[in-house]
Computed example of a mutant assay.
Amino acid sequence: MAKNALQAQLLKAGLVDTKKAQQINKQNQHAKRTGEQTDAEVKQALAEAQRKKLQKDQQLNLEKQRALEEKTLKANIIQMLKQHRLKETDGDIAYQFVDNGKIKKIYITQKLYDQIVAGHVAIGRLEDSYALLPRPLADRINEKMTGFIVVANTKSEKQMDEDDPYAAYVIPDDLIW
């Protein structure tokens, strides 16, 4: 009755009855006659599907890993901003700067104002507020991830053009209107 060893073993174990074994034989013969996929083609298609699924899973794992690394880096930067920001910055002098296309204003002391203009102090974005940071720390944060440092003035000297008729007139950077 059973055409292969597996069917014979299943029949002996009582897992399959003779009617079920005959039905499976008929289905196999019908599949061969009608040109349906053979076992080798099915195995190949299954292996291809598993390979694609494995590749897709690896890609998703890489994306999740990158997102997790970015999230931890952001958390580390926020922690650095909170720990190293300058204290006692409240003052009477208003410093205006541009953040995301909007003009923002913070009130600081004259000493801090001069340090920001000179480039010794930078302004960093800290959640819903701003933090004043020493310039070396701001540079390290900017190297790790951009977007946290809003204002970091440079200390470079401007080159004067010889043909510029207004070269003798100095335009101050710290005008207060």
Rank of each mutant, 00 (worst) to 15 (best):
Q27E: 09
A122K: 02
T154E: 14
I123S: 02
E143H: 10
L62G: 10
R85T: 12
A8V: 11
G35Q: 01
K105L: 12
R135V: 08
K104V: 09
E69V: 08
I24R: 03
L112Y: 11
K56M: 09
Q83G: 06
R85E: 07
Q22D: 07
A8T: 11
S156W: 03
N76E: 09
T38L: 14
Q27I: 10
I93K: 15
K71D: 09
I108C: 04
K144A: 12
K56L: 12
D164M: 03
N61F: 01
N153H: 12
K26P: 00
D90Q: 15
K102C: 05
N142S: 14
Q58W: 00
A167F: 07
R125L: 10
A67H: 08
I78M: 12
A31Y: 08
A40D: 13
Y130A: 01
M145Q: 09
K144S: 07
H84K: 08
D161H: 00
V98Y: 01
M160V: 14
I78W: 00
M160P: 00
Q59L: 01
D139R: 11
P165F: 05
Q110C: 07
Q7S: 10
L86H: 04
T72M: 11
A75L: 10
E41T: 07
T146F: 03
H120P: 02
A40W: 13
D57R: 01
A94T: 11
A138M: 03
Q115P: 04
K144Y: 04
D39P: 06
Q23I: 00
K74A: 07
Q65R: 15
